[in-house]
Amino acid sequence: MHIVTFTRSTPDTAAKVEVGADGAVTWGGAATVVNPWDEYSLEEAILQAGKAGGKSAVIAVGAAMHDDALKHALAMGLDEAYRIEDPALDATDSLSYATAAAAAVNKLGDAKLVVFGKESVDVGSDSHIVQTARKLGWTMLSYVSKILEVDYAAGTIKVERLVEGGKQVVSAALPAVISVMKDINEPRYPSFMGIRKAAKAVIPVWSLADLGVSGLVGKARVVRFKNLPAKNVELEMLTGEPEEVAAKLVDKLLSEKVL
């Protein structure tokens, strides 16, 4: 049995990301990292595969730059990695992503649990996660902070979810797609041996035809990227005794009309 997870390479958090003269998004020579939320889903896939006595598989949808994230995943200890790339596939369209992702899960054939990090910071969205579940026809459990029970034989899962205003415990039927939050686990660092093994790994690339997907048409398209409007914030330091600065700050905030 496979526990499946998905990841992406995203620009390093400290990188300056901007739109270049050619209209493409660039982060100069800065490195990419694993999408920050995926540290937790990769770890959870390893843990759940271990408990189930199955294999963990990680999949990226997109161009070769995502191999870096897949190799990081292999170095952490994921068993298998795959990448989906096709000229007809625009991974920024969540519906296209989900269609391909669901087909890849089906191709593995024996998965009962798919784990995603809460969202992807590059596309700024979690739509593709829910849509992967819908395309599979599986249960979707989002914002999971704890997996309380998984019983593959009985086909049930029980988790704790972080929702607005509190924590919810839900039980549901497998197979399921879950998205996980930061507090679910402590992600491990890749080991030296893991890094060596990952460096040598050859990652299979699947086309849409390999997945049995044809006639895929994106529905949401990016017309253009643009830089943020310049925000010139002039810092004003307030000085004096605590009571004085407090009074000065309240004056300023009242004149800003934010109170």
């Binding site: 995203t10 620009p11 958090t13 300056k16 990301v17 901007e18 739109v19 998004v25 920024t92 910071v121 590059d122 596309v123 700024g124 969205s125 994106g218 529905k219 949401a220 398209r221 990016v222 017309v223 253009r224 990227f225 643009k226 830089n227 943020l228």
Partner: peptide, 19 residues
């Protein structure tokens, strides 16, 4: 059409829906 923050809010995307 929609304007959406992407890349952790560092860039904006103008997106359009077909249908």
């Amino acid at each position: 059409t929609a304007v959406r923050p992407v890349y952790a809010g560092k860039v904006l995307s103008d997106a359009a829906a077909d249908g």
